[in-house]
Design a protein around this nucleic acid. Structure first.
Lengths: 239, 239
DNA sequence: CGATATCTTGATAAGCATCAATGTGAGTGG
DNA sequence: CCACTCACATTGATGCTTATCAAGATATCG
């Protein structure tokens, strides 16, 4: 039952602990486990590319992925950074709609599409569970539209930092220091800015005492309240 | 079985013809029909507001709605224009995540949330059908992120016109003339621009012979190929 | 037919991109 | 272990795209 069609694919274990199974009964988990495969990627490797035939659905077990779409001339829009528990490839029909690339080393759990579709019909509650997941992604996408369409550079970065911080201490306490594994140009392409503007705006936030930058990949939130006000657009441009 | 809890709510008929039932079997359609209510809105009336308790799911029977989110200082992002067949309120959990307002007079089919949720569990294929619908919305949202984050004003308007044209001649021939029932400020807030830029960019497209503007609410596409090239970012700023 | 909202056009300015140069850190090989 | 290298981040100078402010044109409705 364990197929080995992809590089680095081995049977996944402990599938019951994955987000895809949350809220499902034991028999459902067993069925899902039967079609799952584990896969590992190094930094900068792609899971799949925009336009590839959509042959699998994936769940992130560890690490961080970025999703992005390209315009013909190379302009890029990062549509999301994904951590443990997130699914990808769900919204794809025939072909993938975006490229998925590893920001850090990543472990994935892979589900071949054909079998996955069968589960969708046969496992009670599975489709509904995925509907909830997809609805959540849609909610995030709508927030991102507000950010891209109507927020200033400083507001965009404030929103980004708070969002990243929240993703990180997943339900736990809020440690003031945020890990930023993605590069400045990834952040820029996520927020619809240039790398220079990202850099400049971060130093501006630093100068005003809202954040600290021990290294370029570690940001400390010093005044969360002001950052939140800024993210919501409640502070003037020279706050 | 027909409740009358909302203004203008009457039993819906011909539910089988609605998009929500597409691909479902007769018994499922019957069950869905049993919980549906019809509702009519005049131009500018709201179906619900961002933050309201999410008590119903809706399908548009006729007319056009716009969905939008507001920042505290009044900045607005329109997240979509919806026509016949579209569902709204699906992604909402406890509360609605956006305001839905009638652009034209609108007829809706309403499904009280509690009963709707029950159908989700009990009608075979229903959750999966809604998963497909939501996935489609997510795909559109991702395209919109590319537009908002990385396209120029001209590219945004080209994309908007083509999208609106496609929505309109729904599967039929492509009549060159597009209906634009929403105002310039709605378009601006959808594309992340100002009304003035929308106006100016449209006249620019007109001057270059790509479109014609018989009235401000009717746009004729004269050179579809060039508009498509522009929308994809394949033409220079002074095409 | 006048009143009001919407659209268009014009002048100016702000915010951010672009181009260019310098600074910094991680990894490599001598 | 240290200098070297290269990618990445930061800072600076300038310009462009688009917003803003303001006025006029057009359409809509009572």
């Amino acid at each position: 039952m364990y197929a080995h069609t992809a590089q680095n694919a081995v049977p996944a274990f402990n599938v019951a602990a994955l987000a895809i199974c949350r809220g499902l009964e034991r028999s459902a988990v067993t069925r899902i486990a039967a079609v799952s495969l584990q896969q590992k990627l190094a930094e900068r490797q792609t899971v799949f590319c925009e336009g590839d035939l959509a042959e699998s659905v994936y769940e992130i077990v560890s690490g961080m992925l970025k999703l992005y779409k390209l315009l013909p001339d190379g302009r890029r829009q990062v549509t999301g950074f994904l951590l443990r528990g997130h699914l990808l490839g769900l919204a794809s029909n025939e072909r993938y709609l975006y490229t998925a690339e590893a920001v850090t080393p990543v472990t994935l759990c892979r589900y071949p599409k054909a079998r996955f579709e069968r589960l969708l019909d046969e496992v009670p509650g599975f489709a509904r569970r995925l509907l909830a997941v997809t609805s959540d992604e849609l909610r995030a996408a709508q927030d991102q539209m507000v950010l891209l369409g109507r927020k200033s550079a400083a507001e965009k970065l404030a929103s980004f930092l708070l969002m990243t911080a929240e993703d990180q201490d997943d339900g736990e306490e809020q440690s003031g220091t945020v890990n930023i594994p993605m590069g400045r140009s990834d952040i820029a392409d996520y927020l619809g800015l240039s790398t220079e503007t990202v850099s400049r705006t971060l130093t501006q936030l630093k100068c005003r005492g809202v954040i600290a930058l021990p290294t370029s990949a570690h940001i400390e939130i010093l005044q969360r309240d002001r950052l939140e006000q800024l993210a919501e657009g409640n502070l003037p441009e020279d706050f």
